[in-house]
């Protein structure tokens, strides 16, 4: 299989895979948004209806889903900033690969702050 030519931004390696991940996470977040507006709209039906549906978000399986959703959002957000820098910063295209590793580093730090707290809320006792 031929190697991707050197020096391209969006073909093979970090440039392309970050682009793929940006699309996949974007679509995931969009479909969750549609569902989320629908479930929130139940506040117009009755307090009981809303509480029943929102209690589904508090189960362990949905708790893991929320962790995945937050991970998708955090990656999409940080990589989005990287895309903006590639577009507007004069040195952006040169450092796009380094910036992806910065994005991944910030992703790990952010998730390290979020996950323990969220998982304790989901799986912790007292509820």
């Amino acid at each position: 299989m031929p190697e991707a030519p050197g020096g391209t931004l969006y073909r093979g390696r970090e440039g392309m895979w970050s682009w793929v991940a940006h699309r996949v996470t974007g679509v995931l977040i969009f479909f969750f948004l549609l569902v989320h507006v629908l479930d929130t709209s139940l506040v117009r039906v009755s307090p009981e209806a809303y509480n029943v549906v929102i209690s589904a978000y508090k189960t362990p399986i949905m708790g893991l889903g929320e962790a995945g959703l937050v991970a998708a959002i955090v990656f999409h957000a940080f990589n989005g900033v990287r895309v903006i820098l590639v577009d507007y910063w004069s040195k952006g295209p040169r450092y796009h690969r380094v910036m992806l590793y910065v994005v991944l580093g910030l992703f790990v730090v952010t998730m390290a702050g979020f996950l323990p707290r969220h998982l304790m809320n989901v799986f912790g006792g007292g509820h």
């Binding site: 929130t40 506040v43 307090p47 809303y50 509480n51 929102i54 978000y57 508090k58 708790g63 929320e66 937050v70 959002i73 979020f114 707290r117 969220h118 809320n121 989901v122 509820h127």
Partner: peptide, 21 residues
């Protein structure tokens, strides 16, 4: 939005009709 609804207090367990209200 995520910080206020998932991180503060008991996180997702705090969300109900009264919380939205």
């Amino acid at each position: 939005h995520l910080f206020v609804n998932l991180m503060v207090g008991e996180g997702v367990h705090r969300i109900d009709f009264a919380f939205v209200g």
